[in-house]
Design a protein around this nucleic acid. Sequence first.
DNA 1: ATGGTCGCTTGGCGA
Length: 267
Amino acid sequence: MKITTWNINSVRLRLSSLARLITQVSPDIICLQETKVRDELFPVKDVEALGYPYQAISGMKGYNGVAILSKWPLIKIKTKVWCKKADCRHVFATINKKGVRPIEIHNFYVPAGGDIPDPEKNIKFAHKLQFLKEVAKWQESRRSSPSAQVLVGDLNIAPLPTDVWSHKQLLKEVSHTPVETKALEHLLLAGSWTDAVREIIPPEEPLFTWWSYRSKDYTKNNRGRRLDHIWITGTLKKHISEIDVFHATRGWEKPSDHVPVTITLAV
DNA sequence: ATGGTCGCTTGGCGA
């Protein structure tokens, strides 16, 4: 089972990129973030034609939006409201493929948090921390639920020193501040998750999934960050067969600033 | 230290 997560930054603008990704990676499940489209306008038919008839979508006009596209039936589709905002940042469902045990999959788009890493001065940063706190609390309360779970998404935090181009220079930048990386660690522990990507790619090795648009040539200084994650529960740990960060998309025409990350599970 | 670029919409916000 191949599961891909990708912050696509507008699903309508990048349908052809999605098609190209599918040709090259052929995932069973694709989790998108920043779809930026209301559900009524989601390109359901186009996505069906690409081979994904089962879709769990949660979108709004202009901002945010998440979607799970699947080759296999999705059951128990749900969304959650966090921080009392119905801002389409979390959709989850159970993958119900014949002959495979059900896997619950969570797709998150964590608030980016603005520019100033101080919750007193920056309401967006306060929102980000509150969001992580609420999700962690929820995870603690449902520890006994499905044993096979996957959590993916744009978590907007690069936790390890090797998840950013310069640990030292980014310690005061939103996405890599200690308060955020601690909050993410707390969430990871709260749900008893394993960082599947770092199980395969050694933590010593720099690894990025996002490069800012605000640079002429992203390859030149390689100033990236690992903001996109795949976490799994313990029972799936022994089934990881591959992790792929599909860097190529960042060099495509009209790229998203994030690249897809894929896990292959031998289930 | 600052500004740099996108996408959704057409002025300005969010990333």
